[in-house]
Computed example of a mutant assay.
Amino acid sequence: MDIGVALPAAVEDASGRELVAWARAAEDHGFSTLSVIDRLVWPGTEPLVALAAAAAVTERIRLATQVLIAACRSDVALLAKQTASVQQLSHGRFTLGVAAGVRPDDYAATGTGFHDRGKRLDELLVTLQRLWGEGSSTPPLGARRPEILVGGRSHAALVRMARHGDGTVVVGPPGAFAQRAREAQEVWTEHGRQGRPRLVAQTYFALGDRARDDAREHLSAYYAFAGPHAQRFVDGALTTEQALLDAVEGYRRAGCDELVLIPCTSQVEQLGLLAATVKEEL
């Protein structure tokens, strides 16, 4: 199982210098992927801009949106060019993860409909791949189109993955991941896909003396829109070395291909602590 890490682009006070230092350090430590999460109505760095910066200072590590709330981006031609540009700038290291999202405020801010977002995401994925293939308004990709992962908790999200994607992104503990992985395989097979989908898990982490405080402060604010359910994210964060090692083993047993750990602070020292804990996996 590969171990990836997210850029702290969603951490409120993360600076450009910290994001660049984080990208370089993640590659130096041997992590498999450098990902970004997406939320428009939040003081963080835009995901594709962050990945473009990371592409400029790295050479080997994969770059991924996990996930981009793509359906609230109404200009599909522009999105096609942006994603193709990241693929070109990174020399083919980009993975596009998408989902419909659950926050109406992201859609309200862009003037796009919320209740039909799933249908529009399906249409967007078809159009994106057509525009990538045409190459008339995007950088030439040839056969190197980005890998596509589809996230989301619904059955419709799994159908979307089987129709348009290469795998899925699951947020949740190992037990929930194992159940979702079984469902993903069933839907994949039902739609005539050969082999198995790529299975990626995500979870939050913070290490060091302030680990619990960092997790509580960041996640309570980031998930404040969820009301009392925000505490579930706080409680689920991995804040000790043993919790992290237990989670790695749990995801591995559940059939996970890659575990991506999302930081709750932008301090680059977190990467050293994380790498030391999971050194056998890197």
Rank of each mutant, 00 (worst) to 15 (best):
H164A: 12
Q185C: 14
A215I: 09
L51F: 11
A50H: 09
T203G: 11
T45E: 04
R182P: 02
V169C: 12
L124S: 07
H164D: 04
R216I: 04
A178M: 04
A80T: 03
Q129L: 05
V171T: 12
V150T: 11
A215E: 06
A230Q: 11
G152W: 07
G44A: 06
A77K: 11
R144Q: 14
D116A: 15
Y107D: 07
I262T: 06
A226L: 15
S220I: 02
V36W: 03
A221H: 14
I3P: 00
T203I: 15
V200T: 12
T127Q: 10
E217S: 15
G195F: 10
A109P: 06
Q66I: 14
R24H: 08
D257M: 09
L261A: 04
A23Y: 05
E269T: 02
E12Y: 04
A201I: 11
A100T: 11
A99Q: 15
R73S: 04
A243F: 08
D213E: 13
F31E: 01
D13R: 15
Q88D: 13
R198L: 12
A176Q: 14
D209R: 10
D38H: 10
E46D: 13
D38S: 12
D116W: 14
E134Y: 06
A156G: 15
L274V: 00
T203H: 10
D166W: 15
A211G: 03
A211L: 13
D2S: 06
D106S: 11
G151I: 01
G250K: 08
R153Q: 14
P104S: 09
L199I: 07
A9R: 11
V268R: 02
D246Y: 10
D257Y: 06
L207R: 00
S137K: 04
L125C: 04
Q270A: 01
Q87P: 00
V11Y: 07
R182H: 09
T127C: 04
L259W: 03
G152T: 08
L78C: 10
I69K: 06
L124E: 13
A9V: 02
V67D: 05
G175R: 09
L273C: 00
Y204D: 13
E258I: 10
A55E: 01
V150C: 11
T239N: 05
A215D: 09
R160M: 12
L282C: 05
G4D: 11
